[in-house]
Every structure is written in C-alpha cells, then in structure tokens.
C-alpha cells in the first residue's frame, strides 16, 4: 500500500513540476493515440455505414470476422507490422520501422475491428425508417447513410472513445515496432514497461496514474461532445 501512496504523490509531483521528459512522453502518447483513432474513425465510420446498408455475398461472414478480431492479440499485430515494414520486408524501403508512424499503423490495425464492429452495432440500433425518410426527403444515398450515422451519434462516439482507449493503452506492438526509443517513440505505456524492467516500480506506477488521468480527461471531453 505504501508504494501506491508514494506513486500517487510522485505522479502529482511529476505533473506539477512539469517534468519535461514525462510531459513529452505524455503528449506523444496522446498524439499517437489521437492520430490512430482519427484515421481509424475516418475509415471505419463510413465503411460501417456502407456495410450496414448494402447486402453482398459473405456479409455475415465479414461481420463475424470483424467481431472475432476484437480480441486480436497485440503481439500478433506488432509482429505483422514488424515483418511488413522491416528493411527485409516488402515495405522496408519506407523506413517506417522504429518511428511513431509505425506505432500509428499498428494501432490503426488494432482498433479498426472495434470501431467497425461497434459502428455496425450502433447503426443497427437506428430505426430502419430513418433511412427511408431521409431518401424520401431528397437525400442522396450517401447523405442518407450519413444521416443514419448522425442518428446513432451517441453510440458511434462511444465506439470512438473505446477505440481511443484501446489505442492509448497499447504496449506490446508499440514496443516491438516503435522500439521505445527515448525522445522519439517512447510513450507512457512503453515507458512504464521500461521502468518496471529497471526496478523503478514506483515511477512506473506514477506513470500509470498519469496515463489514467490522461484517459480521464480525454473521456470527459468526448462525453461533452457526445451529450450535445
């Protein structure tokens, strides 16, 4: 218990003193997770709309696959991205490995199933007549899909929040494809991992507390958007 208290105090000390390295790591965590979430949302929400409204052969199987991928192990994604972007790999020439971009790619892959699946779920909850209504009132197909998405906005924002949560807590693939490089690809989660390795348990806990606080702040903001 004593350790937890020390950790809590240390966390506040780090925040208040605005320890530069911790700030940098925190902002990087936020930036990478936010970028991943934005990219994934921009893709998954419209695609979710398309999947929901159009029938095609294998639709049911696709939805099953998406839901199975919710529990995609992060090490698998990390390994996949590593093998793809390593210099010996097909996309090696881009030199993306061990950069924040690689972490973003990994996180986007990880949260896409969640965002897609939850968006589909959200859209299923919308009254079927809404689309007919929208079309009848003169909307194009895309406008109608967008209108339904807007009707489901509460649940869709919830999906985005969930995606963000998943992204910011990512550690396995982030270490493997980011390299946890100080000042470049180190984020809160990977820093925690390192400090545990070094035996700095209280510092690791403190970073963990900061991570939770960060998630809390982001959540509060997202909730405000959700409520309006």
């Amino acid at each position: 218990m004593g350790e937890l208290w020390i950790a809590l105090l240390k966390a506040f000390e780090l925040i208040l003193k605005r320890d530069p390295e911790v700030m940098q790591i925190t902002l990087r965590s936020l930036r990478i997770a936010a970028t991943s979430t934005c990219i994934a949302s921009l893709v998954c929400i419209p695609v979710g709309g398309l999947i929901h409204f159009y029938s095609f052969p294998g639709k049911r199987i696709l939805i099953n696959i998406i839901q199975t991928l919710y529990s995609l192990p992060t090490v698998c994604v990390g390994l996949l991205v590593f093998v793809l972007f390593s210099r010996s790999g097909p996309f090696g020439g881009l030199g993306i490995l061990f950069t924040p971009t690689a972490i973003v790619i990994g996180e986007v892959i990880l949260i896409t199933p969640i965002l897609l699946g939850l968006t589909l779920s959200a859209l299923s909850g919308v009254n079927i007549s809404i689309r007919d209504n929208a079309l009848s009132l003169g909307a194009t197909e895309f406008q109608a899909i967008w209108t339904v998405i807007r009707e489901a906005r509460f649940s869709v924002v919830a999906a985005v929040i969930m995606g963000f949560g998943r992204a910011i807590s990512e550690v396995g693939s982030a270490i493997m494809i980011g390299g946890n490089i100080k000042g470049f690809t180190r984020v809160l989660t990977t820093a925690i991992s390192l400090e545990i390795q070094r035996g700095e348990l209280e510092f690791a806990l403190a970073l963990g507390i900061i991570l939770i606080l960060l998630s809390l702040v982001v959540n509060i903001i997202m909730n405000m958007i959700q409520q309006r």
């Binding site: 530069p20 902002l27 936020l30 470049f184």
Partner: peptide
C-alpha cells in the same frame, strides 16, 4: 499536438 510538439528530449 501533431505539428508543434518538439520531438527530442
């Protein structure tokens, strides 16, 4: 956050 946060320690 994306463009103006310094990278190095």
């Amino acid at each position: 956050l994306t463009f103006f946060t310094g990278e190095s320690a």
